[in-house]
Amino acid sequence: MIKPESIEDLETFLALAYLLEIESSDRYTELADNMQVHNDPEVEQLFRKLSEYSGKHASEIIEHAEGMVLPNVASWDFEWQSPEGPETTAFEFVEYQITPVKVLQLALHNEIRGHDFYAHIAEQSPSEEIRKLATEFTDEESEHVELLKNWIAEMEQNKGNTRDDMDPPNMPE
């Protein structure tokens, strides 16, 4: 197991950063698909938007890596504070009755973890190059955190935070 903060070469760091964004984006898509199947277009669209953002970040990382050959890394080779990458939503957090506000709170949770992850590397990395890039990423994550906080505040004004299931799954036929 490798501690992410002990990564020494820029290629591995970028590969990992890329992987984390891809994993995050893929997961949001999976969750969007799931909410689509359960006929919740509002939450579905929200997850799609979040997936798009993560996908955009992944592309930006690829731009950073132009001209480099990135190694084949797997996220389970690294030691995490979370079960998966810091920006990946756990399936278990998403419930059938999840509200849009709750979705954004999950995204916020991810972005905060992402922020802390990069901030930790920006502080600890043995490579100056990585520290510099990680600082950049930390700032970006801070922006995301702020954006999400505003979004949530706006939404909370308009909508409540609970929903009723009028048609539970084990209704007797």
Partner: peptide, 22 residues
């Protein structure tokens, strides 16, 4: 490039019917 970026290529277009949180 990480192999894992290809993970979603192993998925079909069919969306799982499992309950959220499953």
């Amino acid at each position: 490039m990480t192999n894992l970026a290809k993970a979603k290529s192993y998925k079909s277009d069919i969306k799982p019917i499992w309950c959220p949180g499953c």
